[in-house]
Design a protein around this nucleic acid. Structure first.
Length: 158
DNA sequence: GCCAACGTTGGC
DNA sequence: GCCAACGTTGGC
């Protein structure tokens, strides 16, 4: 299977690109949305590229690159009563929620903000720029991934 | 802090 | 199976 590309949202207050840089790799726990779960479970493979997006930030935007470092396995936080992500409906014998591990690759020289992406025609099909798009894990194309990465590593604005 | 857009839940 | 109510997301 060819390498795929993704955009993954995280709130910097909760887990930022700097946290990922510090940790090297992290379990992507707490996804409680079926569509996002399905992407992780069915489509994400080790080595896939990740655009690391800061949501609920000022401004929001893509701040760096990650990669899938472990394919889907049960999100055990769902079994932990003390966790914010506890879900009594997830049975350890048949886990409802899955997660992958995401590894750190690089931090952009500058953020590629949501506003900037909205203004670039080549990125006009990206899900993240669509109003009301709340999905926390989104597929992106190879070209979109490459362009956002290039922008983030280019100091001068287009 | 506001609120529109979603997704989920649960009564019927 | 419908849909109103509710909770959450996330830009602004």
């Amino acid at each position: 299977m060819a390498k795929r590309y993704w955009l993954m949202k995280s709130e910097p207050n909760t887990y930022s690109i700097d946290d990922l840089k510090r940790d090297g790799t992290t379990p992507w726990e707490g996804v409680r949305n079926y569509q996002a779960r399905n992407y992780m479970r069915d489509d994400m493979k080790v080595g896939d590229g990740v655009l690391f997006y800061h949501s609920n930030a000022k401004p929001p935007g893509v701040v760096g690159i990650g990669k899938v470092s472990r394919s889907a396995y049960p999100d055990f936080y769902a079994f932990d009563k003390k966790s914010n992500y506890f879900d009594p409906k997830s049975d350890p014998e048949n886990p409802r929620w899955m997660m992958v591990d995401v590894g750190y690759v690089s931090t952009f020289k500058r953020m590629v903000s949501l506003n900037e992406m909205k203004e670039i025609p080549a990125l006009s099909d990206m899900l993240v720029i669509r109003k009301g798009m709340r999905l926390s894990i989104q597929p992106t194309t190879k070209d979109e991934f490459a362009l956002v990465k290039k922008l983030g590593n280019t100091i001068a604005k287009a």
